[in-house]
Design a protein around this nucleic acid. Sequence first.
DNA 1: ATTGACTATCAATTATGTTGACTATACCGT
DNA 2: ACGGTATAGTCAACATAATTGATAGTCAAT
Lengths: 152, 152
Amino acid sequence: MRRSTRKEESPDLGILTSRVLFSVQKEMFETLGLRGHPRVRPRHGAVMAYLDAEGSRATDLAHQSGQHKQVIGTLVDELAELGYVRREPDPEDRRAKLIVPTDLGLDMMSVSDAIMADIERRHALVVGEQAYDEFKRIFHKVADLQLGRGKD
Amino acid sequence: MRRSTRKEESPDLGILTSRVLFSVQKEMFETLGLRGHPRVRPRHGAVMAYLDAEGSRATDLAHQSGQHKQVIGTLVDELAELGYVRREPDPEDRRAKLIVPTDLGLDMMSVSDAIMADIERRHALVVGEQAYDEFKRIFHKVADLQLGRGKD
DNA sequence: ATTGACTATCAATTATGTTGACTATACCGT
DNA sequence: ACGGTATAGTCAACATAATTGATAGTCAAT
């Protein structure tokens, strides 16, 4: 059997994650576009995915998203330009600034959370609620293992 | 509870896939470097992951990897430069060229397949053989569902 | 033989990611 | 309080990657 055929029939973890990631990303940003947020792009996800309503620090976003802090900086510039966030001084640390979502930002956060929930609900419906929960549980464990942490 | 905390405790499908993908990718290319292939980079995966020993067409690689054919072109340029593949005329279609792995390319393909198998074996050992198989089965199904929906 | 689709490639542009350095502030041990 | 060291965010230069539009050759079906 050809290697490409084998990889098609039994895709490995790298292939599965990349396919699902990019396809989910595509659906996410196309749908966001239809729901009033046409200018946000996948890379902005690094900020919007983890942003807290109370505001977040760039460094925290960098850690959570796995991006360099310089990247977060330019993302925040862009998102500020688009009206999704603004920078405020952090009252607890005068070196830091809080990145705080505007009303538009809050809307986008809740819309994107809803889109992701829809996607997952759709899959759970087909593969079975219980099977999907178990899938997520193992996936979480695999992610922690792969990232080098220990989660029991 | 803060949104970022919630996303940390119950990461969604987008977060899980991106974390695992980039972490697997990092391990893959660091290990490939240690095993005699230091010059290949993640993006070359689009070609090397699907390449057949008998040779593959650029268009097929583009479809399988989800990359534009222009990208495949530059990847093949680089891989040819590094001695991993060469272009041969396709005997069945004079428009097309077959991208054929050299001996070095074949070695890299088998090493990378082995690295990925090691990674998955490691996870299977921890979460349980049976649970991991089930995880992969649901993942495959979710991937097919997602690609069918998000309009590949 | 002509038409429309497909293969690969070129070239130009835009987008994204990486690296090193720098200022201001905080933290810690003394 | 003082010094050294670590951290937060930003600048700027550079390196890599992805997107788009166009082209010449080939194919496949009239």
